[in-house]
Design a protein around this nucleic acid. Sequence first.
DNA 1: AGTTTATGTAAAGATTGGTTAAATATCAAG
DNA 2: CTTGATATTTAACCAATCTTTACATAAACT
Lengths: 224, 224
Amino acid sequence: MAKILIIDDEPSIVKLVSAYLQPEGYEVYTAADGIAGLKAARAYKPDLVVLDIMLPGIDGLELLSRLRRESDVYVILLTARTEETDKIVGLSVGADDYVTKPFSPRELVARIKAALRRLKSGAGSNEILAFKHVRIDPAARTVTVNSIPVELTAIEFDLLKTLAEHHGRVLTREQLIEHVWGSNYYGEMRVVDVHLGHIRQKLGDESLIATVRGVGYRFEDEVL
Amino acid sequence: MAKILIIDDEPSIVKLVSAYLQPEGYEVYTAADGIAGLKAARAYKPDLVVLDIMLPGIDGLELLSRLRRESDVYVILLTARTEETDKIVGLSVGADDYVTKPFSPRELVARIKAALRRLKSGAGSNEILAFKHVRIDPAARTVTVNSIPVELTAIEFDLLKTLAEHHGRVLTREQLIEHVWGSNYYGEMRVVDVHLGHIRQKLGDESLIATVRGVGYRFEDEVL
DNA sequence: AGTTTATGTAAAGATTGGTTAAATATCAAG
DNA sequence: CTTGATATTTAACCAATCTTTACATAAACT
């Protein structure tokens, strides 16, 4: 999942924010001063940086402007009060959002999520997928076989949609898990088999999903 | 796509903002003073106006108040500092949002997008929504089921309306909150469940709202 | 045949959503 | 400014459902 870098010298804040982010599945990296922050940003290539404006060594704004020279990463600035000047200067230097201390962790997490969602958008299209008698509508999350609606669970739907989006190509269990579960899944690969069994059962003979022994599964879009 | 009018006498700012907006597919019009701005607004009927408060000729606020007499267009005010007075006066005269200079083009673009998104989907249409036995009148904010009026609270109404406007599509709790509560809500997502429970209770079996487990809710417009 | 890989099934475990009730916020009227 | 009515939000519980694991069986390949 997404990588987040927190640059702040107050351990309590770093701890608090990490505690909120990690359970959500984010990879959280931290740095306690500007130099370390810049290095960490280069090393880990985070998707988002939470940056305290008050830092020992390099000042937060200075760090931000340096960061901007080499990266387009989304930066949320943490400012010490509603010092309006901080806000203005911060935004002019290139911050994407800012949160004033004291802040609610919940709000910060919400902003982070919103930002990442916005960044990621454009991933899965919402086009209707139709093959033979199978029709998949991602917007409505409905599936019909011969115009008869079929009820699928969330995972079953995502699995079928992923296969259909890559119709004609074999997808390994790992690839399917990457798409449907995301990269922080550490369970068995065999889950895929079980859910696929359920999909086949529900779609009947028209499931169009072929097994490629030793490799994975393929959604058949044409007769072979 | 959407039409945006920028009214500002500083060519550098006009250029900068245009440069950010045009690649996004917006039709961008510009005007360098108040008179031209008002004319342009009448001629092009933009969906959104970015208006600098400091203008030669007619002052920005004066222009805004004139504009308001004839149009309901969304206006983002560009103010020269964080003069709180500017903000307050601006909003009281009818601006919908404001950005302080110097600003990050990125932020301005984000706000424009957000505003247009909100306009397009939510408050936009005032058409009566009728499905099966449910009839929703956004202008009067009334709902009837089988011609019998049903009393809904503000949030319940907006929630139902939002779902009906996107009938046939699944909306996540986040999307519903974005529409009904706006983008700066940082409370629990489950609040949606509670209000939905109330709506269902009041509308009875005809609520037409389906739960899509693990995803969100969908307003059913046809039998599947 | 023997090995490997996939399928079907069932039961344990985890999530999710409906519901309720209490806490909090909002608003109008006194 | 209080009060009371109403609306909204939070939190908790529980039932329903989904997900995962495990294992037995079946099929495919060597």
